[in-house]
Design a protein around this nucleic acid. Structure first.
Lengths: 146, 146
DNA sequence: GTCCCTGCAAACAATTTGCAACCCT
DNA sequence: AGGGTTGCAAATTGTTTGCAGGGAC
């Protein structure tokens, strides 16, 4: 795993201990972005059979709080996690099968939208979720979210 | 309640029966937008002491499915409901106190952002949530979500 | 009178919390 | 050795589901 060294460095930078569990979670999410907590656990138990779902939740929480992961909440389903924390990209979700794709921000700044003014609120960021139907699901609306 | 007649008409248009519970839920949300299901129940029990939280959930689900209400999921907290279904406005959320404000869409169309192309997905709409800190919470970060 | 809707209870899913044992440093 | 982390269990929150009685039409 060529990314292991990078994860180790990043963990050390944040004064976090380098554990097998954290490395496995980071590897799984780097390989398959947009995994839910359950899906992360399913991907990780193959290497660490003793890891529990609760530990995955703890790891995800700690790594998110330390900016190594980014969490986002698709409408109506469980939270997803990804390793791209450096940019301000957004997401597109297929309302039929639940698949999620990254959408690069056209303007490249955060927030990439015109930050609304006169709100009585200082805006720090904007989360954007596009909803639609992906090509595989067009013409086959009987599918269930995967 | 001057809106009662309007609600009655809208319910009849959708072939939905006009019940005290539905009118009370609609009134509560029209008066206080962005209520959660629990908050709707708390607001409604004052007039209908016998209503249960589960009935509120059912009413919210049915009215949302029939376009009388709009549901949206703020990141990390319970679903909220509002009566503005006619336009494509967005939301701004204070990350300190949890308060939510409407943000009118600058372009007035849905989706108001440049719909991304070449995605392998046909985009139908865009949900935008701005995150920030409202004026009352600036300088008092110790507050908890209300 | 018919059938949709409500009330009630139970189940369910996603996530958080408390504590002792463990292992990274 | 010491304290941050994990494993395990239980509790919590938000929401959905199944069914019998009741109210809208």
């Amino acid at each position: 795993m060529t990314t292991a060294n990078t994860w180790t460095e990043l963990l050390r930078e944040r004064r976090l201990r380098v554990t097998r569990q954290r490395l496995a979670v980071l590897d799984a999410i780097a390989e398959h972005p947009h995994l839910s907590a359950e899906a992360v656990h399913a991907a990780v138990v193959r290497r660490l059979p003793e890891i529990t779902v609760q530990s995955v939740y703890t790891v995800l929480h700690d790594l998110t709080a330390n900016q190594l992961l980014r969490r986002f909440d698709p409408p109506g389903s469980a939270a997803r996690y990804e390793a791209r924390t450096d940019d301000n990209h957004h997401h597109a979700m297929c309302t039929v099968c639940g698949r999620i794709e990254d959408v690069d921000c056209a303007r490249g700044e955060a927030p990439c939208l015109q930050a609304p003014t006169g709100l009585g609120m200082e805006i720090e960021a904007a989360d954007v979720v596009f909803r639609g139907v992906c090509r595989t699901c067009v013409g086959d609306r009987s599918r269930q979210p995967a």
